[in-house]
Amino acid sequence: MEVRTIKVFTTVDNINLHTQVVDMSMTYGQQFGPTYLDGADVTKIKPHNSHEGKTFYVLPNDDTLRVEAFEYYHTTDPSFLGRYMSALNHTKKWKYPQVNGLTSIKWADNNCYLATALLTLQQIELKFNPPALQDAYYRARAGEAANFCALILAYCNKTVGELGDVRETMSYLFQHANLDSCKRVLNVVCKTCGQQQTTLKGVEAVMYMGTLSYEQFKKGVQIPCTCGKQATKYLVQQESPFVMMSAPPAQYELKHGTFTCASEYTGNYQCGHYKHITSKETLYCIDGALLTKSSEYKGPITDVFYKENSYTTTIK
């Protein structure tokens, strides 16, 4: 009895394709271990004539594949690729409408935090270190965002349907971005203890939790000093293409032309909904596939993004 075979390709990165001759009487799992086709788990399936010449994702289970996976995804987590594939199996079914010149995501599976993050990423200057993220990001900007969303979920250790947080998501993504040249110098002034300067680099240099107003941050924000008295913390120097200011959701007025974009969060910790506000020729609110415009805006804002380049204080 002759062994019926077909020729397929296996890959971990969709760049390096490895030619395989597979036995049609055995499952993919018996031949390769966990195997995925377009995100779908085909591990328990036997090869079919229609699979001839198709590319299958496999887990990096030998040295060659491990090197290829690390170079593309910059992670050695053995569960990463499987999590990416199972997320992709959902995100490829989502709709990605162009809204006001940006790629958004039609609401499904509690994905409003991903839509808000995706919209924000198209408006701030950011370059990702893992080629996987950078490639998928370019495709997302062009309207094909399924891979990018699935990668975000995998890097953030999230599953489809789980509630997510924009600030946490951005923080994970910033860790995989090139923020080497970003720098922030802060000064804390206390009447009792004097003053202390701190220099922050990388992710810490672009994120701040405690106030939404970048102007206020430049002037000074009140913080408790270690001595128990009130101290003032203010920005001395900022070198970065953008800054992200966050605070627990509270009524906040966004003035046209003073910011790049913002995240609105309605609801409580267990259950809520994100919308995205962007400042173009007027203010726009993007909620999944829905767009509304207004000249002014007041609502429960939790993150505001500002364009920056270089700032030095005039406070002496």
Rank of each mutant, 00 (worst) to 15 (best):
E2I: 10
E2Q: 10
T5P: 13
T5S: 15
K7Y: 11
K7W: 11
F9D: 09
T11E: 04
I15S: 09
N16C: 08
N16H: 08
Q20G: 09
Q20P: 07
M24V: 13
G29S: 08
F32H: 15
F32Y: 09
P34C: 10
P34Y: 15
Y36L: 04
L37D: 14
A40L: 14
D41M: 10
D41C: 13
P47I: 06
S50R: 12
E52L: 11
K54I: 12
Y57T: 12
N61H: 10
T64S: 12
T64F: 10
L65I: 07
R66I: 12
V67Y: 15
H74Q: 14
Y84G: 03
S86V: 14
L88I: 08
T91I: 05
T91R: 02
K93D: 15
W94H: 01
Y96Q: 02
G101N: 11
K106P: 05
W107Q: 05
N110R: 06
N111H: 05
N111K: 05
N111V: 01
Y113L: 00
A117H: 03
Q123W: 04
E125M: 05
K127Y: 09
Q134R: 13
Q134W: 03
Q134N: 10
D135R: 09
E144R: 08
F148C: 04
C149M: 12
I152Q: 03
L153N: 00
A154E: 02
A154Y: 00
A154I: 05
Y155L: 02
R167N: 04
T169C: 11
T169D: 02
F174H: 02
D180P: 01
R184D: 00
C193Y: 02
Q196A: 12
Q196W: 13
T199H: 11
L200C: 12
G202Q: 02
G202R: 05
G202L: 00
E204Q: 14
V206C: 08
M209H: 15
G210E: 02
T211Q: 07
L212M: 05
Y214N: 02
E215G: 06
F217E: 02
K219R: 13
K219P: 02
G220E: 06
G220T: 03
Y234S: 08
Y234D: 02
V236D: 04
Q238V: 00
S240V: 01
M245L: 11
S246C: 09
A250L: 08
Q251P: 13
L254R: 00
L254F: 01
K255H: 10
H256K: 15
T260N: 06
A262S: 02
G272Y: 04
H273G: 00
I277C: 00
K280F: 11
I286G: 03
L290K: 15
K293I: 09
K293F: 10
S294K: 09
E296D: 15
Y297A: 00
G299Y: 00
I301C: 03
T302F: 00
Y306P: 00
K307W: 05
E308M: 12
T312H: 14
